Simulated assay, not measured.
Amino acid sequence: MSVRVERDEKTGVAVVTLDRPERLNAIDLVTAAQLADAWRDFRFDDTVRAVVLTGAGAKAFCTGIDRATDVPQPPSPYSTDDPLLTVGPKANDLWKPVIAAVRGMACGGAFYLLGEAEFVVAGESATFFDPHTTYGMVSAYETALLAQRMPYGEVARMALLGTAERMSARRAYEVGLVSEVTPDGAELAGALRAAEVIAGSPTEAVQGTVRALWATKEAARAQAYAQAPHLIALGNLPVERQAELFEDRGKRGAEFRIR
């Protein structure tokens, strides 16, 4: 299993762990399906009242879609097959609160998950970046989600600088992407503490609050998502050229900086 689920019936908290540390917790089609299954299963499990989402290992929370995953695309700018659209809790009709615990890198497609979490707890050496433009891809869904959590200029800077710059956990806290910064290794415990408090409240009220919060963002997100497939189809380089840029990433000599 590339997604590990642990339930604590005493506290009412479940922990979902992306368990592919050898691939920096990148999401392949199997992982995407397992995430969707986990979120949908929680809807029917009254013992789970809050969820913590994290990644195995110290190097990465998640690095987006696995580059080895072959996802054929329709030959039309009006259609896009994006397996990451179904990996988040809200995409699977789960309104129990989800708290993300981030250690190491969180980049690219990781924002499909962070964007659908209620809030993020990060270890102090965690970094956030969006490599799409560096590799000739349009950042559309990721920026739509980030723009609902961060100021426009910060989202634009992250998306347009690509791999050249990584946002530190401290900066992410300052701009609102992260709600708490902990020492490295303590981010999971911090997220669990918050989840246990939330799980102790009446679940109907908690889920209603989550749904109300999400409703405040739905119209803008829906408009952005409606345009995303066309922008991606028109702006992405051919897959072969993307692969060349990705393979050349270690040869260009460009040093990233942490801000």
Rank of each mutant, 00 (worst) to 15 (best):
T127C: 00
P89S: 13
T86S: 09
A186G: 00
E187K: 03
Y173G: 06
M158K: 00
G108P: 03
L84M: 14
P74I: 00
S139G: 07
A191P: 04
Y141T: 03
F128K: 12
F111N: 09
A140M: 13
E118N: 15
P77T: 04
A122E: 11
L114V: 08
R149H: 12
G208N: 11
V155N: 09
A156W: 00
E204W: 12
L146K: 01
A199C: 15
R193E: 05
L113W: 02
M167S: 07
R103S: 09
E118I: 11
A194E: 04
E165V: 14
L84E: 04
P151I: 10
G136F: 11
S76K: 03
V197R: 11
A205Q: 15
L145A: 08
S179A: 15
V138S: 06
S79I: 00
A100T: 05
G109E: 13
Y78C: 04
V121D: 03
R211Y: 12
G190W: 03
A140Q: 12
E118L: 15
A144Y: 03
A191V: 10
L160V: 03
I198V: 15
V197Q: 05
G115D: 10
T143E: 08
L161S: 07
L160I: 02
G109T: 11
P74A: 00
Q207N: 13
V155Y: 09
G153E: 11
T209I: 10
L84D: 05
E142F: 06
M158W: 04
G115A: 09
K90N: 12
A101F: 13
E180K: 13
A117W: 01
G190T: 03
A106W: 04
L161C: 04
E118G: 09
T86H: 07
A194Q: 02
L84P: 08
L114P: 08
L161I: 07
R157I: 03
E165P: 02
Q207T: 14
T203L: 07
F119Q: 08
Y78W: 07
G88M: 08
V175W: 06
A122P: 12
P183D: 15
E124D: 06
R193H: 06
T209F: 14
V206I: 13
A164W: 00
M158T: 04
A169Q: 10
G88L: 06
I99H: 05
A189T: 12
E180M: 14
W95L: 11
A156N: 00
P75I: 01
K90H: 15
P183G: 09
P97A: 13
M105N: 12
R193I: 01
F119Y: 10
E204V: 13
R170K: 02
A191R: 05
G185V: 06
T86I: 06
S201P: 01
V206H: 08
V102M: 08
R103E: 12
E204D: 15
E116T: 11
L192Y: 06
A126F: 01
V98P: 12
A101S: 15
A195V: 15
F128G: 02
L192S: 04
L188A: 02
V181Y: 04
F119N: 09
R171S: 05
R157S: 08
D184N: 13
T80D: 06
